[in-house]
Design a protein around this nucleic acid. Sequence first.
DNA 1: TATGAATGAGCGTTCATTCAT
DNA 2: CATGAATGAACGCTCATTCAT
Lengths: 199, 199, 199, 199
Amino acid sequence: MPLSEEQRLNMKKRRQKILDTAVHLFATEGYEGTTIKKIAEAAEISFGNVFTYFKDKEQLFIASVVEPLEAISDQILDFNEHAEDPVAELLEMVKKHIKLFAGEQNYLTLVVQVVGQHQRFPEPFDHLDQFHDKWRNKIGRLIESGQEKGLLQKQEPIPVATLYTSLLIGIRLNNTDTRYSNMWDQYITPTFQLFGPIH
Amino acid sequence: MPLSEEQRLNMKKRRQKILDTAVHLFATEGYEGTTIKKIAEAAEISFGNVFTYFKDKEQLFIASVVEPLEAISDQILDFNEHAEDPVAELLEMVKKHIKLFAGEQNYLTLVVQVVGQHQRFPEPFDHLDQFHDKWRNKIGRLIESGQEKGLLQKQEPIPVATLYTSLLIGIRLNNTDTRYSNMWDQYITPTFQLFGPIH
Amino acid sequence: MPLSEEQRLNMKKRRQKILDTAVHLFATEGYEGTTIKKIAEAAEISFGNVFTYFKDKEQLFIASVVEPLEAISDQILDFNEHAEDPVAELLEMVKKHIKLFAGEQNYLTLVVQVVGQHQRFPEPFDHLDQFHDKWRNKIGRLIESGQEKGLLQKQEPIPVATLYTSLLIGIRLNNTDTRYSNMWDQYITPTFQLFGPIH
Amino acid sequence: MPLSEEQRLNMKKRRQKILDTAVHLFATEGYEGTTIKKIAEAAEISFGNVFTYFKDKEQLFIASVVEPLEAISDQILDFNEHAEDPVAELLEMVKKHIKLFAGEQNYLTLVVQVVGQHQRFPEPFDHLDQFHDKWRNKIGRLIESGQEKGLLQKQEPIPVATLYTSLLIGIRLNNTDTRYSNMWDQYITPTFQLFGPIH
DNA sequence: TATGAATGAGCGTTCATTCAT
DNA sequence: CATGAATGAACGCTCATTCAT
């Protein structure tokens, strides 16, 4: 007896609700601090039903790291490495990224945990690491293009790109509360300096 | 009959060994992932003996965060905010900090966890946060001095200082393995750009 | 999907079995001498399942004292304080109580422990104490009625009632084995003397 | 090297202090609730030193029950079973016993625990039981003598004696607080009725 | 598919006991 | 004899996972 369309949709929604709840709890309470019972209660489903959608706790954790990554990666990679004016493109990119990172506290806190304890979480880390490489390389190529056009100082592009991604995750980590939330705009210009723009 | 001098020394060594082991395990395996049993085995002492030196797991965790901080904070604050040449001082500071952060993977990974999950670990976070404020303000004053002497572009000093500390912790977080460890030197110049030096 | 009627019944039985087992073990082995493991084994259920029915060991202990009290208190209070012939009523009451106390070794041993260590067990003791007051006062009123009709010697009713309840719990405590179990009948007359009947 | 007289005396005092402390703690906190550490602290000696005087916790517990018994038993048995006037002797005995039991809350609370959980504490219970038999029999003979002289109603002496000792321990158990402490005097006459005096 | 009771391994912690000093 | 650090068994309790309904 195949499931009706409505059931299918319901299940999809339910799965997503579990996942959203799990991201939030894993981020704020950590892996062991988050119990299936807590997730079930917060997602307003029954305890045992969590296992209908995710094989076990580990798979749920992996999904919590990997699935939002797929959703956000397009936005992160949304800049043109072949732009006519690479410096203007870089500045726009910085603005976008800072805005994006400012708004994603929850998920990024989870990312920080996985990266910080990558030996414990090798599988989700691997996904993050691969994305990071891709991202860094794309930024590197944009930097290279700017240097070739004489608009940026000569520096090794990959380390600079690494510094940039490190800076972004670092700001997210450091701005633990809302005291400096209005500071995010002030971060743009100095961050941009990292790339060594020639005036 | 008080303890002999030798016993006293032995206990001090033992306590330190537990602490070092705990820092390492908490950093790589997280708070719940680290069990007292694992710590005892790695420190080569009996299970129950851990509790001779630390009241409970939480106190051991707090000590793991706070005690190394006291040891390292002097080195981190070792720069002169009233230097004649603030720009040269900043550059030297960047070099020192990068070297320091490159060498302290273990402890800093633990710091990342506490900061990333500060709601879970309010007490050790508070210590870190207070040190961070002190550090950031000292850097801010050095930046201000450079700006007053016309050697640095005009930017709000505190956000720049925040960016700088964020960058440092971010590099430490991102360089999870040794693949880029030879890159650390390449980080110096672009990081220094953050402060907006005028050539 | 709620539980079926059969399941519900099974759970009720299981809870009662745990409680009965707990009363027995707490009575014979004391609070700390009784472990959850022992209870689970004696009740033929798994260790963790005890916690499905009782939040923790303390709650199980409280339930072990309080729930049987509710069952037995009606029987204990089953005498008529307004009887036409208060002396005959007293004699009947004594017979009933002695019979009741003779048959309830297990639970009363537990009661003795709670009363004997009331500082350690304030919550269950409070329940017992309240019942004791009620019981003692009711006996006191029956004694008073007998005295007013000139059938009992003049004595303060409440101390006499206290002596009577003390005697009952004391017999239960002293008759630790079955050596004197056929003595219970012989206790009736002398116990009745306590009330000072006038012949 | 034999110990000096002073040392010997000191050790005797120390042993007694441990014992007194243990009686108090075992009585109020129970067997498992009492730790060697607590005893050592309360007795103001070092932890390990407790084991110099008592082989292990169990032996200390046994000594806590048995040694005070030896001290108190003479007082309890201090009545004349061959008295000229057995009824007057009984009345005096009742007065003494009630006074004695009123003043010995601590030790008697411990006795109640051992009797109530005699399966757990067979060795100290055996001592108490033997004393109890001796006591009860002596009272029985005094009762018998009173009956032979026609001063007491005919009743089986041993059950009456058992009732009497039960009553004493029962009062001690029931008077958990000081609310009725001034009642002790009021207990004498009705308790005495137990023996069936003929007026 | 949805539910939640049942299971037991594993945790942090306590504490009687041993033993080197 | 006095001390208290070292040991590890045993405790209460949690929770991921299973499974009957």
